[in-house]
Simulated assay, not measured.
Amino acid sequence: MNLIRVLVRNMSQMKPVKKVGVIGVPFEKGQKKYGVSVAPAAMRYAGLLDKLKEIDGLDVKDYGDVDTHPCQETRQTVPSVENMSDLALVSVCNKRLSEKVSQVLRDGRIAVTIGGDHSIGVGTVDGHYNVNEDMILIWVDAHADLNTNKTSGSGSVHGMPVALLVKELSDYWPYLPTMDWQVPKFSIKRLGYIGLRSVDSYERLAIEKYNVPTFAMEDIDKHGIVNSIQHVLQVLDPEQKRPIHVSFDIDALDALEAPSTGTPVRGGLTLREGITLMELIHATGRLRAVDLVEINPALGSGADRDRTLEAGVAVLRAALGFSRRGTAPRGKLDLPIQTPPHN
């Protein structure tokens, strides 16, 4: 019997949602490299919507792009925050995104958000939490994104979204102008990491202090991707009832698999591991939101760009029910595998 089928039967009896709402977020001010803002357009041009519609029974609706242009408030003089670049722009984008994610979820659809840099995780998780307060968050990334403005080496907000979201770290922040709309309510006890391999010292301290279930690449090498995600889900949701949010940074994949990204780190997940991870989460029936961020079509060669976009499409298709097995007659997949006799 197929191993994934056995594991899924033990993990959940819920049926996956078959309606999807796609949101584009052409935003790149959470980091300093040009190009990540064109990823939503590039993903659509690469055929994302049509390839999602090929999944049997999946109802796909494109909600368009979030308006990332400055509002009147950000055009006025806003007090700056030390070591936080473009905070006002990050804030207005995420506020609009939060509202859009909540709308998609209330429409009964899985919210699929295409970034943009990972600072948009503030808006996607906030919007999801406003609808499902019992949600859990799986952060798939080479980086923990747990820095504050006091610990960040770059001042780029795409390295801070988790720290901005979790209530346990709220006292470590100064007052953040324009961010009054976002009150940290999500608990770090509902967070798990997959794929880490570039973690700063402060981030490591926070992970250890709060005992966040974390499978870095060395752990995945030892235990395998299936056991790794099973353990994280069991720790965060032992009763297997909570809605799942996956925030997937394309740099979680090895740089050979997805070279067109701003902060590539060698030694990451293979595309097969990334697909298996998302297949398992899909099969729980509890996936309600998924982000795909940090694809930068302006970096690398044309072949690098195409390879990265193809990887992103494959990850999302796996999350939403595409089967690598194709179609097979009912019951045939559970037949025992016959081992040929040795001569």
Rank of each mutant, 00 (worst) to 15 (best):
N2Y: 03
V6M: 12
N10Y: 07
K15G: 04
K15Y: 03
V17W: 01
V22W: 01
V22K: 08
E28Y: 10
Y34F: 11
S37F: 05
V38F: 04
V38E: 07
A39N: 02
A41P: 00
R44V: 07
A46Q: 08
G47R: 06
L48A: 08
L49Y: 07
D50N: 15
K51A: 06
D56H: 11
G57Y: 05
D59F: 04
Q72R: 13
Q72M: 10
Q72A: 14
T74D: 12
R75I: 08
Q76S: 13
V78T: 10
N83R: 12
D86W: 07
D86C: 13
L87F: 11
A88E: 15
V90S: 08
S91V: 07
K100E: 14
V101E: 01
Q103F: 06
V104I: 14
L105F: 03
T113H: 05
G115P: 08
G116N: 07
D117I: 02
D117F: 02
S119V: 07
V122D: 00
V122A: 05
V125E: 00
D126E: 10
H128P: 00
I136M: 09
I136G: 07
I138E: 08
I138K: 00
W139T: 07
V140F: 03
V140R: 00
H143K: 08
N149T: 10
K150S: 13
T151R: 06
V157C: 12
P161K: 04
L164C: 11
L165E: 02
K167F: 01
W173R: 06
L176C: 09
P177G: 10
T178H: 04
T178M: 14
T178A: 06
V183H: 07
F186A: 08
I188M: 13
G192Y: 01
Y193S: 07
Y193N: 05
L196T: 08
Y202Q: 12
L205N: 08
A206E: 08
I207G: 02
N211M: 11
T214V: 11
F215N: 03
D221F: 06
D221N: 15
D221E: 14
D221R: 15
S228P: 05
I229H: 04
V232N: 03
V235Y: 01
H245C: 10
S247L: 04
F248Q: 04
L256S: 13
L256P: 00
S260T: 07
V265Q: 13
R266W: 01
L271N: 02
G274Y: 02
M278T: 10
E279H: 06
E279L: 11
A283S: 15
G285T: 09
R286H: 12
R286F: 03
R286E: 01
R288K: 15
V290C: 14
D291P: 04
V293T: 15
N296V: 12
P297H: 03
L299P: 01
G300R: 04
G302Q: 12
R307T: 14
R307C: 12
T308Q: 05
G312K: 03
V313I: 15
A314M: 09
L316S: 12
A319Y: 06
S323F: 01
P329G: 05
R330V: 15
R330I: 14
K332Y: 11
T339P: 00
